[in-house]
Amino acid sequence: MFEAKFEDGGLFKKIVEAIKELVKNVNLEANGTGISLQAMDTSHVALVALQLNEKGFKKYRCEKSLTMGLSIENLQKILKCSGNDDQITLRTQDEEPTTLSFTFESKNRISEFQLNLMSLDQEQLGVPDTEYSSVVRMPSNEFTKICRELGNINEAIGIETSKEGIKFYVKGDIGEGQVSVKINDTEKPEERVECEVDEPVNLSFAVRYFNLFNKASALSSQVILSMSQDQPLVIEYIIEEMGSLKLYLAPKIND
């Protein structure tokens, strides 16, 4: 028996919105500690990882670990029947569920849906706990804007960190450009830029993945970029009181 109730159903909708362009079918894992999801994008360049802790739910019960294979596209069709202010409850009765039930509750109506599940034998990747040599925290809409603007100039974006801050740069056929974001210690937490640089990095990534993933900036006003030279970058959106949504993106290595 599994039951998880989102106080803020809109949050769950934003999470699905953020990953729907990157992953098609996913295994949703539920156990006593909460819900998690890990899936590679179709080109196997990126890995999406979601972790939602049971304490963040209005109601949470999971007697036995469950794996529920679902199509993100079909999940979206069900969620489109809910309002952004609804409370959303996920529920299954059986140990090997073939469907996942949804209840959408608002002041004046209650809706029930069942999504058919699939059996997906997807390889799970072991993401090692890593000490990153550069960790940058910045406003998520600033990062989204820089990726979108520089992505118009070139499909690969360079990221260089130093004690002073983080520099994004592009060199394309039409020309080149760079944006340096400076550290600030403003008292407004959502506008703060912090850099912890033990070792500077200089990495290159396909910016299209950032642009696909940056829909997640609706989840948090800040984004955390963790980097080490020649390692995948991690973009992390902290989901207040619940957990986090991460994108691991493999770098482009110059031959």
Partner: peptide, 12 residues
């Protein structure tokens, strides 16, 4: 050259 994510993380 674009690397694959699985080349960094072992499948568990």
């Amino acid at each position: 050259m674009q690397k694959k994510i699985a080349s960094f993380f072992k499948s568990s």
